Amino acid sequence: EEAIQNFKALLSDMVRSSDVSWSDTRRTLRKDHRWESGSLLEREEKEKLFNEHIEALTK
């Protein structure tokens, strides 16, 4: 649960536009030290959280 919250915070800070792809964003996020705290999450979970974040940005 904490890993999810940390990853959501990372997305909020780093992803402000809804027209970015997961693969491009992932490359950028990996450069942030907080990426490692999400290592407990599966890749699919990270992508799902990313997609939810993008959906929220479009509303």
Rank of each mutant, 00 (worst) to 15 (best):
V15W: 00
K8L: 01
A3R: 09
L49N: 06
H33R: 14
K8Q: 06
S18T: 14
R16A: 09
W35T: 06
D19P: 04
L29W: 01
R16V: 11
S23F: 05
H53S: 01
K59L: 10
K59Q: 12
S21Q: 08
M14W: 09
K48H: 09
N6I: 06
S18Y: 07
V20P: 01
T25G: 05
D32M: 07
F7R: 03
T28C: 12
F50I: 03
A56F: 12
A9E: 12
S17Q: 11
S18I: 10
R30P: 07
W22S: 04
E52N: 03
K46G: 14
L10Y: 02
E42A: 15
A56D: 11
N6A: 10
G38Q: 10
S12N: 14
S18E: 09
D32Q: 07
E1L: 05
T28F: 10
K48R: 14
N51D: 11
K48D: 10
D32T: 09
L41K: 04
A9I: 06
E2S: 09
S37I: 01
E44S: 14
A9L: 10
A9W: 01
R27N: 12
S18W: 03
K31H: 13
R43C: 15
L49R: 01
S39W: 10
T28N: 12
S39Q: 13
R16H: 12
R43L: 15
T28W: 10
N51I: 07
R30T: 10
A9F: 05
A9T: 08
H33G: 12
K48Y: 04
I54D: 06
S17V: 07
E44M: 07
S21N: 12
R16S: 11
M14E: 08
S37A: 12
D32P: 00
H33T: 05
E44N: 11
L49F: 03
L57G: 02
D19C: 07
L41H: 00
V20C: 13
K8I: 04
E47W: 06
R26I: 15
G38N: 13
T25R: 00
L41V: 08
E47M: 02
L41Q: 05
